[in-house]
Design a protein around this nucleic acid. Structure first.
Lengths: 245, 245
DNA sequence: GCAAAAGTGTTGTCCTTACACCCATGC
DNA sequence: GCATGGGTGTAAGGACAACACTTTTGC
């Protein structure tokens, strides 16, 4: 309570005082963890690494690292992606921060969680030697620490987000067929969609461009290939959804 | 790069090693800041406090504090609300974490931002002596550090969130008229809504209960008072929105 | 010619929007 | 009785869901 009183007091502090407060013992280890989604063989997948802790060596883990003292959070997330997948310029978005006191056995670690979406085809991993693998999201079991809870949060986030924003294209090759796009949505939302209505919806949104090519090497009539047109999206995107809950 | 190599190495670490890593110098000051929304006199407001820093004493600030080493993030946010407003059990939700290296002049401070919604009527502040005041969101000027940017982010968040979830009721008295509810939505969304359609929408969602009372002391025909029925909401709430962007 | 998926249209339903009149109360 | 906002209904348009047949290709 004395503490409370101090915090509430109206006394004027100096910048120097503030600095020493920031330098004080009240500092906490901060990490970034990345939930990296991929789409391959018509399955939604997540990139996991085998824990490098002896005690947990049969458990898989999200990709993460401590944030460096002079590193922006976003920069930290990009660094982790780069280190682990060898790739820059992936889609990346901050989702939530998990900070329960007991979440990490090494002590207090607060973790800022990012989701990333990568195209597994374009970005074949060269780093299988690090026990880094794509895991089907349907068969995920226990993960390190609270990483399963974090993953579940991010999966729900993705399901919602993909319906309101054109994220999904980051999981596909630049050229894709409508069938591939629909398979992606069905995998993420975990439900069947009507093919004709799905096509109508995307064409009416006017965000796809027919690039005049067809699928190759399919044992049936080849579908047309499209690309996502970001400029068209920006021009046409919805402003308001209306109250609905 | 040597560092990168170390992080990627497949060497097995012990828990003890992990602990020392967490205890290492890579620790960062972590704060929680709260964007506290209120609704009064048909205006959307935000609770701000005059900065207690000499250099910034004419600048207003969000309510925040450093997270204590043994304190959950949510707990920290509740503590700040309790300390500054004297109230428990307010609506509270984590929104985003801001961690740019240069955002705080006292050194590196990463801040986890929460939004809170309070009913200004029920929760009259007793603490006006601390330069704590409700500010109309339309007339917000400069705030401390990056707090204006944080506020803007939270305001956009609120506009979106209030259309998809029944948050708004936290800003109103338990009993409210439809007019009050509409005024609230108009203030948050910053646009006029059609009165008849607004009523139809809320009645068709079936989340309001007529409590059999009327408004008092209004210079016109009194409106009925309603309360929000959380159980009805849970039973009826939408599962899927459909793809739309 | 057959298997397999591509491609296409219509209809009914529901939701949203726009809009105008009477009603109850305070003064 | 008049001013003020409360309360209600309807019609048109747009979006969404359900549904079946023809077309193109590989084999």
């Amino acid at each position: 309570m004395a503490n409370t009183k101090t915090n509430l007091s109206n006394s004027v502090k100096t910048l120097k005082g503030l600095q020493s407060e920031v330098q004080s013992i009240n500092r906490i280890a901060l990490s970034v963890d990345c939930v990296i989604f991929g789409f391959d063989e018509n399955k939604l997948k997540v990139l996991l690494i085998r824990s490098d802790l002896k005690k947990y060596q049969n458990t898989f883990s999200l990709l993460g690292d401590l944030v460096k003292p002079e590193e922006d959070l976003d920069t930290s997330a990009y660094r982790i992606l780069k280190q682990r997948t060898g790739l820059n310029d992936l889609y990346l978005e901050q989702v939530h921060t998990f900070g329960e006191v007991g979440r990490h056995p090494g002590g207090r670690v607060v973790t800022v969680v990012y989701c990333s979406l990568v195209n597994v085809q374009h970005h074949r991993l060269k780093t299988l030697d690090h026990d880094l693998h794509w895991h089907e999201i349907d068969s995920l079991k226990e993960l390190l620490f609270d990483h399963k809870k974090i993953f579940d949060h991010c999966y729900v986030w993705l399901q919602k987000r993909v319906q309101e924003h054109p994220l999904g294209f980051s999981l596909l090759p630049n050229k894709f067929s409508l069938r591939e796009l629909q398979n992606l949505y069905e995998a993420i939302l975990h439900k069947k969609l009507d093919r004709r209505n799905f096509r109508k919806k995307f064409f009416s949104m006017d965000v796809l461009v027919d690039i005049g090519e067809d699928e190759q090497n399919v044992p049936h009539r080849p579908g047309k290939l499209y690309k996502f047109d970001y400029e068209k999206y920006e021009k046409n995107k919805k402003k308001w959804q209306g109250i609905d809950f």
